[in-house]
Design a protein around this nucleic acid. Structure first.
Length: 555
RNA sequence: AGGGGCAUCGCCAAGCGGUAAGGUAACGGACUCUGACUCCGUCAUUCGUAGGUUCGAAUCCUACUGCCCCCGCCA
């Protein structure tokens, strides 16, 4: 038995330690999205970390919607978020809502007041800001800070009863107005909001702030490790303060651990930016294949396994970093390699007439669906006198080491014959519109022909039977940030989508929406789910195949 | 009157006082009915910098430097 060295990370090290020392005996995590947008690949990392951590220790993970701000959240997203998590292949233990705990949260606030640890403040928002001080100067106490417990209790109850207007007063924790950590300068615990909540309706007019609600949600659910991103490091102090001061959680409480969120090259995940792209019609919705949203990636043909593998590969650490897009692409290809059927399609067609092939004759040639996995079977592909090849597979003036077609050169057609190029036909403008070749019957695929070799092998489709299709070629939605500080909207790539009219082999008439194919020698392409493939066959390029072939640089 | 974090190969990232894993990228080469895949090889005498402790330091100490986060009644 080979000892596989389990690569760890700082979070699992901490857990190993706590488990070893008996600080706790089990692991429970949670993924707590705010239902205010669609999930993207950055969320996928958080989802992975939470679920993978629980899995590693035989624990469980809750899905909890952090819906404590009715002015920002929407029911619409609750369903899509669940769908996307399922799509990634994860199953949560309990489905929870922060709003389920509004009652308990309220009672815990009362407990803090009773302990003299919270007070109702009537300072205005501006005044609170003023009193808070700055990064380098201490704050000062609110004049309302030392009200009696009874008065605080009464006022807080009246807040809940709707006796006051929004912004008239808030409940604040009484901690330390001089703390070097600004989060601890009497943070607001509850604010008044006359907004209808998607689950609790108008039952409440006061809503807890994240800093108060989150530790309670975790603790109530029995979460042991509250894994979140780096920007919450300062908030850990209030997270601990809340739980330390409540009797119910005096003994054991969850531990918050922060990790660096994902940054991907040429990708922006901010909701504001994504929404901007959609609102301005730059893309056609949350599931546009150019977006890093999970629904966008899905429509592009990216598999959930590729995303999970990617999350695993990038690791977990506290260092702010940006991952190259190439790593993501590698994971996509790697997962599709053995899963996708390999077929032939021509994206930028050039007509080829095989002059010595009988007119009208059609033969069906067997082609393997995936030569790395013969269990995927084969199909019969029609071949005849007129075919299309990729325009870039012919050159009038071939550069050095060009193995494809040019006058006098011979190549192999995948699954068919060798053909030799004899002449080309141009239109008035001098553009090559057709080439004429001859084939050698002896070289038929599977015949074992070995008399001579050919350096190039190209793909093709039989012209009369080929299916017309639209092929969407995608480039990054953002241009490189030359220099820096450029606004995202100024970096939008005007050529992020190129629509091609191509041809694919007729076997693709059976293709189903969402299905992903390898177009041999080109890349992976997914049947677009917004169009009925029977009526408007459209492919979205998932990712290019790698290629070591480079046309010599000119100039 | 500031506090909290982070710095290891182009990009991620292990490493936890015993002499720099792995992935990706790149570059060679083999193979090939995909210039793909696969396979083989190359790729940090060095861990932000400068000192110190030690037989021995990426790991410990000190001082610098750089970057990120925090002054919402957002999360």
């Amino acid at each position: 038995m080979t000892e596989e060295k389990k690569v760890s990370n700082f979070i699992w090290d901490i857990i190993d330690e706590e488990l070893a020392e008996g600080v706790r005996s089990s692991v429970y995590t949670r993924f707590p999205p705010e239902p205010n947008g669609y999930l993207h690949i950055g969320h996928a990392k958080a989802i992975y970390i939470n679920f993978a951590t629980a899995e590693r220790y035989g624990g469980k993970t809750n899905l909890r919607f952090d819906d404590t701000n009715p002015t920002k959240e929407d029911e619409e997203y609750v369903d899509s978020i669940q769908q996307d998590i399922h799509w990634l292949g994860y199953e949560w233990d309990k489905l929870c809502f922060g709003s389920d705990y509004f009652g308990q949260t309220y009672r815990y606030a009362v407990e803090l007041i009773q302990k003299g640890l919270a007070y109702v403040d009537e300072l205005s928002a501006e005044e609170i800001k003023e009193y808070r001080g700055t990064l380098t100067t201490p704050g000062k106490p609110s004049p309302y800070r030392n009200r009696s417990i009874e008065e605080n209790l009464r006022l807080f109850r009246e807040m809940k009863e709707g006796r006051y207007q929004e912004e008239e007063m808030v409940l604040r924790a009484k901690i330390d107005m001089e703390s070097p950590n600004i989060v601890l300068r009497d943070p607001v615990l509850y604010r008044i909001l006359y907004a209808s909540h998607h689950r609790t309706g108008d039952e409440w007019c006061i809503y807890p702030m994240y800093d108060f609600a989150h530790p309670l949600q975790d603790a109530i659910e029995g979460v042991t490790f509250s894994l979140c991103s780096l920007e919450f490091e300062n908030n850990r102090a209030i997270y601990d303060w809340v739980l330390d001061n409540l009797d119910d959680f005096a003994v054991t409480r969850p531990r918050q651990i922060e990790f660096a969120r994902l940054n991907l090259e040429n990708t922006v995940m901010s909701k504001r930016f994504l929404k901007n792209l959609i609102d301005n019609g730059v893309v056609d919705g949350w599931d546009d294949p150019r977006l890093p949203t999970l629904c966008g990636l899905r429509r592009r043909g990216v598999t959930p396994q590729a995303i999970v593998n990617f999350c695993e590969a990038i690791g977990i650490s506290k260092a702010n970093s940006e991952v190259e897009y190439a790593l993501f692409e590698h994971m996509v290809r790697d997962d599709l390699k053995m899963k996708a059927k390999r077929v032939m399609a021509v994206i930028d067609p050039l007509k080829v007439v095989i002059t010595n092939y009988p007119e009208g004759k059609v033969e069906y040639l067997p082609v393997s669906n995936n030569q790395d996995d013969e269990t995927m079977g084969s199909r019969q592909v029609p071949f005849g006198r007129e075919i299309y090849i990729e325009r870039e597979d012919f050159m009038e003036v071939p550069p050095p080491k060009y193995h494809r077609l040019y006058l006098g050169n011979e190549v192999r057609l995948i699954g068919a014959y060798f053909i030799r190029c004899n002449e080309m036909v141009k239109d008035e403008s001098g553009r090559v519109i057709e080439i004429r070749c001859t084939y050698d019957e002896k070289t038929k695929a599977g015949s074992g022909f070995k008399e001579r070799k050919v350096k190039g092998t190209i793909h093709w489709v039989h012209a009369p039977s080929a299916l017309s299709c639209k092929i969407n070629l995608y480039e990054p939605i953002l241009l490189d940030d030359e220099g820096d500080g450029k606004d995202y909207m100024d970096r939008i790539n005007p050529d992020s989508l190129k629509i091609m009219d191509g041809f694919c082999e007729e076997s693709l008439k059976e293709a189903e929406a969402g299905e992903v194919f390898q177009f041999m020698r080109n890349g992976y392409f997914a049947v677009d789910s917004h169009n009925d493939p029977k009526e408007n066959l459209t492919f979205n390029r998932t990712v290019l195949l790698k290629s070591s072939f480079k046309l010599p640089q000119k100039g």
